[in-house]
Amino acid sequence: MIELKGVSYIYPNGNKVLDDIYIRIENGSFTTILGDNGSGKSTLIRHMNGLLKPSQGVVSVCGMDTASPADIWKIRQTVGMVFQDPHSQAVGATVEEDVAFGPENLALESDEIRLRVTNAIANVGLECLEDSLLMSLSGGQLQKTAIAGVLAMVPEILIFDEVTSMLDSDSRSQIIDIVRQLNKRGKTVVYVTHHMEEALFADRVIVLENGYIASDGTPWDVFREIYASGRKVPPHLELAFRLQDAGMISPDVFPMDALSLKEEICPSR
């Protein structure tokens, strides 16, 4: 569990990026953090594994304070983080060497490292590329390697920082599938994105605006609120809300995509 209590963060240049944030992320949940560029999403999640220390307030991970130097390595082992640019998180020449980087830092025996590397690579479906040079991989494959690198450390909580923003649509859906699978297997997921469609799969959506929490709730609540305020929501949701307002479909319906909305309007036989 991650808990942020009254967290504010001011960069050394005086720019206040987070303002009095209270968030509690439960074990096994799937939380999406939505927000425009510069809203403080990346700064917020970097507090969750101790890469940044709050200027005010407390961040605790499974009861450990991220400001405590004694707990920092345990915290980073518990909270794995995958970053946006797949090229800027590679540290090995080949896939298996890169995936092994984390377990090597944990000073594990080579047999244990090998086991973890094999499992992590299988989890992201890169078995046939184990020995491939990272330079020869596509963006999607590199991002899967980065996810495997984090999985090899067997973290309880996974944070994904706009991991699909540099990928094509196929790679994007593959990465989202992997993230959803990991959550189904019990990992706590915090998923940062500015693509609204990617927030639909979450249990909870938090919208950040200029460093404060603008909305927090289930995807249905949050997207309803966004729609009500006159801002853009994914086209199929906008249509669903309009149909709900007109009483043409049930107000409980929350279609994940256009196909499920179509099923709701005219079910196939």
Binding site: R46, N49, L51, W73, R76, Q77, G80, M81, F83, D85, H87, S88, Q89, A90, V91, E96, E97, A100, F101, G102, P103, E104, N105, L106, A107, L108, E109, S110, I113, R114, V117, A146, G149, V150, M153
Partner: peptide, 25 residues
């Protein structure tokens, strides 16, 4: 900028530099 990002990624994967083991024993 890339070096900064890599340093952050390494740190979040518990890199300390004092002692590590290797996949290749």
């Amino acid at each position: 900028r890339m070096a900064d990002d890599v340093a952050m990624a390494m740190e979040s994967r518990c890199y300390q530099g004092n002692f590590r083991t290797s996949l290749f024993e």
